[in-house]
Simulated assay, not measured.
Amino acid sequence: MPLILASTSIYRRQLLERLGLPFVVARPDVDEAPLDGEMPDQTAERLAIAKAKALVERSPDALIIGSDQVAHLGAQRFGKPGSVPKAVAQLQQMRGQRVVFHTAVALVNSSTGNTQVAGVPTVVHFRDLSDDEIVRYVEKEMPLDCAGSAKAEGLGISLLEALSCDDPTALIGLPLIALTRMLRAEGVAIP
């Protein structure tokens, strides 16, 4: 069965390439706004499923991967900043705090309708960063397309005191341990 990544994220594409499986990328058309009263982990998991299911009609005989990530500090959510001032503001709010990055992955078999989903939280403890450190980081890394403005796979690692997670790829945006488990359940041989 063809494998489709329902995401245009370069980070997710690079992670999926690690598995050495052929796949194509397609853009899902999904409203990513959280629902009223929805917890961050519920938002991530709902959106991961919605992104995968958005491609079912176009690909009736495929395995479709959807993924989403919600960064939050209590009730405060941190999306993709999109601009330097917003990235700086996000990091100022997160400095010295423990922020949860909840990453969800879903796999939909479009021919059977079988849907699997898993959520993987990563607790990220940010250092007590100075404004100068934040500005220098944002200017060098330009993390404008990353939830929470921190790219731990790059210079963003210098912003952290510690992190805790069961899957090191979850923080980057696609939990490969959970995904490979799902793919094996669908009969895909990995490795």
Rank of each mutant, 00 (worst) to 15 (best):
M1H: 06
M1P: 08
L3E: 02
L5M: 02
A6N: 07
S7H: 05
S7E: 03
Y11C: 00
R12C: 03
R13M: 04
R13E: 11
E17V: 05
R18K: 10
L21E: 04
V24E: 14
V30M: 12
E32D: 11
P34L: 14
P34R: 13
G37A: 03
M39V: 11
M39I: 08
M39D: 12
P40K: 02
D41Q: 12
E45H: 00
R46N: 05
L47T: 06
I49K: 13
A52W: 06
K53V: 11
V56S: 15
V56G: 03
V56C: 13
R58V: 09
R58A: 15
S59W: 15
S59R: 10
D61P: 04
I64R: 00
I64W: 00
Q69V: 07
V70T: 12
G74I: 07
G74S: 05
G74V: 03
G74K: 06
A75H: 10
Q76E: 15
Q76R: 14
R77M: 14
F78W: 12
P81S: 08
G82T: 08
G82Q: 08
S83W: 01
S83N: 07
V84R: 14
P85F: 08
P85L: 09
K86I: 01
K86N: 12
K86F: 02
A87V: 12
A87N: 12
Q90Y: 11
L91T: 05
Q92V: 07
Q92C: 09
Q93C: 13
R95A: 13
G96K: 10
G96I: 04
Q97E: 14
R98A: 15
R98K: 15
V99K: 04
V100S: 14
F101Q: 11
T103P: 08
T103C: 13
T103K: 09
V105C: 12
A106C: 11
A106Y: 06
L107D: 02
V108K: 01
N109V: 10
T112N: 04
G113M: 04
T115L: 14
G119W: 05
V120M: 09
V120K: 03
P121Q: 07
V124E: 10
H125N: 11
H125W: 06
F126S: 02
R127H: 11
R127N: 12
D128F: 01
L129D: 08
S130F: 03
D132E: 13
V135Y: 04
R136H: 14
E141T: 04
E141K: 10
P143Q: 09
L144K: 07
A150Q: 11
A150E: 06
K151D: 03
E153R: 02
E153Q: 13
L155Y: 08
I157E: 04
S158R: 05
A162L: 00
L163Q: 02
L163S: 02
S164Y: 11
D166L: 06
T169S: 14
A170D: 03
A170P: 04
G173L: 07
P175N: 09
L176R: 00
A178V: 03
R181T: 12
M182L: 06
L183H: 01
L183V: 02
R184H: 06
A185R: 06
A185C: 00
E186G: 02
E186R: 01
V188Y: 03
A189G: 00
P191F: 00
